[in-house]
Write a protein that binds this DNA or RNA. Structure first.
Length: 509
RNA sequence: GCGACUGUAGUCUAGAGGUAUGAUUUCUGCCUGCCACGCAGACGGCCCGGGUUCGAUUCCCGGCAGUCGCACCA
């Protein structure tokens, strides 16, 4: 058996404690789907809330919530029906599959064969007698694979619909509303966190590649003649590690360490807006617990890029088990989408400049896979210490904020601890109460799900309302009075106080 | 989708053609004056379907699922 990986351990805890597990378990499971439990749901929501802090609230950007199933013409206009598909040809001998258009390109030197369509590809394969590159066997006719879920809308089934593979189209479809609600001023942005679906051929790596997941993305609309970002100065000194398109093409292994400001100045990042979002992204991911040295930005080569993109930088984080994993893409989509929807719908989406000229806004899009961020948080914060599992979740992400324990289960301590528990619930905290087993075991149970603070009720509490708070990360304890407790906890979770400021340090033993 | 390996309590495991080992978790007592203490007890399992067999969780075939490799990942 292969050795146990960090991901094995994390997914074992995830199942056992209720972060996430494979969906449809009782019917044998279905790959590509995961279900989030109590802890997982809460953690996911708090990651989303933090994303909103970094990408929506402070900039005054707008939000949107749009349907998952879209009529076919949306994806005709967006180019997905044309581009988001592939032709695969299977070998009759060895059974391997290959992309038919790529085989034709290799043999003939032609480019963008995919766009020629299925019939043309079939003819070219026959014409050039293309055989299996693996074993030389005969290839079957190429079959079209469209990784979008197709359905019918309405009882008569007359209207074909697809589940969206990205949320971005919603921001383009509703562009005119957003423009109106932004009081017809550019730049503005519309953000959405919602589910999308992709019919992956072979989902892998647990929750890393699934068929249904949450995307958090925003579309920033700007005038290409006025491409400055008003907040660029806030991030220009953020240092990132970069692999540029040129470096990717030359397969340079080392990363370029540079500031956002320099990278934009040197033309490595095409627009200030991309630079801005990449800088914010680095800060956001760091706030999730992933240190900067485990982050990098990697440019897409033209053939890797989406059909709409002029430049894309993936933000990647380092997983012990898998290496670098993409958690975000920051794409310069130009005016591709608005232009296509304008043409297809006949609706004018241009903006009038002061000099009387009109233009179609350009778009920069930072886009996150929430489920991958979720795994990144577990990856970044999990620690095995003295045979115990500890999740060093940032305090603003922790599903439960405070655990309350009686020191021992006698002499009225449980009753007193219940009172403290109820008080904290009334004050709005997420609290767990635990009196099973020894207090050490309860600390361990709370550590495993990342509860940052544990309040212990002991004989001093009975005597004079003094209790202790124990820190998950250092195991240090401070003491304070019950009356102070709600106030200092609030300050702690707002980030206004550090643990040692919460009370008087207790030295035991 | 193809190939290799794998599938046993909630979790992690041992094992054999005659329904199964151990640990841990959980629960109940006792204990416990601060880091998974100890004692006693309880709950709980052979992925699904077919075949061979007196008998299959074990062998064979298929499915489903997992890991890895190939392909794919806008």
């Amino acid at each position: 058996m292969p050795p146990r990986t960090r991901y094995d351990t994390i997914s074992e805890i995830a199942k056992r404690r209720g972060f996430f597990w494979p969906s449809f378990e009782i019917y044998g499971g279905m790959s590509g789907y995961v279900t989030y439990g109590d802890l997982g749901t809460k953690l996911k929501r708090s990651i989303e809330a933090l994303w909103k802090e970094y990408f929506v609230r402070k900039q005054g950007f707008l939000e949107l919530d749009d349907p998952i199933i879209n009529p076919e013409r949306v994806f005709e206009a967006s180019g997905h029906l044309e581009n988001f598909k592939e032709y695969s040809a299977e070998c009759t001998q060895c059974g391997r599959s290959f992309r038919a258009d790529h085989l034709v390109e290799e043999k003939t030197g032609m480019e963008n064969v995919e766009a020629m369509g299925g019939e043309a590809i079939k003819h070219l394969m026959l014409e050039h007698r293309i055989r299996c590159p693996n074993c030389g066997g005969e290839l079957k006719e190429p079959v079209l694979f469209l990784p979008m879920f197709k359905t019918e809308i309405g009882a008569t089934g007359g209207e074909v619909g697809y589940a969206r593979p990205e949320t971005a189209q919603a921001m383009f479809l509703n562009y005119k509303r957003g423009y109106q609600h932004a009081r017809e001023k550019l730049p503005f942005a519309v953000a959405q966190s919602s589910k999308v679906m992709r019919n992956e051929i072979s989902p892998r790596r647990g929750a890393i590649r699934v068929r249904e997941f949450t995307i958090m993305e925003l579309e920033l609309f700007f005038d290409p003649q006025d491409p400055g970002c008003p907040w660029f100065r806030e991030v220009e000194n953020v240092v990132i590690k970069l692999s540029t398109e040129e470096m990717e093409a030359k397969e340079v292994k080392e990363l370029l360490e540079t500031s956002i400001g320099e990278a934009v100045e040197d033309g490595l990042i095409l627009t200030e807006w991309q630079g801005y979002f990449m800088g914010v992204s680095q800060r956001f991911i760091t706030a999730l617990g992933m240190p900067p040295e485990k982050q990098r930005f990697r440019a897409h080569l033209p053939d890797e890029r989406a059909h709409y993109s002029a430049q894309t930088y993936d933000h990647e984080v380092l997983f012990e088990t898998w290496g670098w994993i993409e958690i975000s893409g920051c794409a310069y989509r130009t005016d591709f989408d608005l232009r296509n929807h304008m043409e297809a719908s006949g609706v004018d989406m241009t903006v009038l400049r002061e000099d009387g000229t009109r233009y179609v806004p350009h778009v920069v899009e930072p886009s996150y896979g929430l489920d991958r961020l979720f795994l990144s948080v577990l990856e970044a914060t999990y620690e095995r210490k003295q045979k115990r599992n500890i999740l060093h979740l940032p305090r603003e992400l922790a599903p439960y904020q405070v655990a309350v324990f009686p020191l021992v289960t006698k002499d009225g301590l449980p009753e007193k601890a219940r009172e403290v528990h109820d008080l904290l619930l009334d004050k709005g905290f997420w609290v767990v109460y635990d009196e099973a087993g020894s207090i050490g075991r309860r600390y361990a149970r709370a550590d495993e799900i990342g509860v940052p603070l544990a309040v212990a009720v002991d004989y001093d509490t009975l005597k004079n309302d003094v209790l202790t708070i124990r820190d998950r990360d250092t195991w240090k304890q401070v003491s304070l009075s019950l009356a102070e407790l709600p106030g200092v906890l609030e300050a702690y979770f707002k980030g206004e106080k550090d643990f040692l400021d919460l009370g008087t340090l207790v030295i035991r033993g």
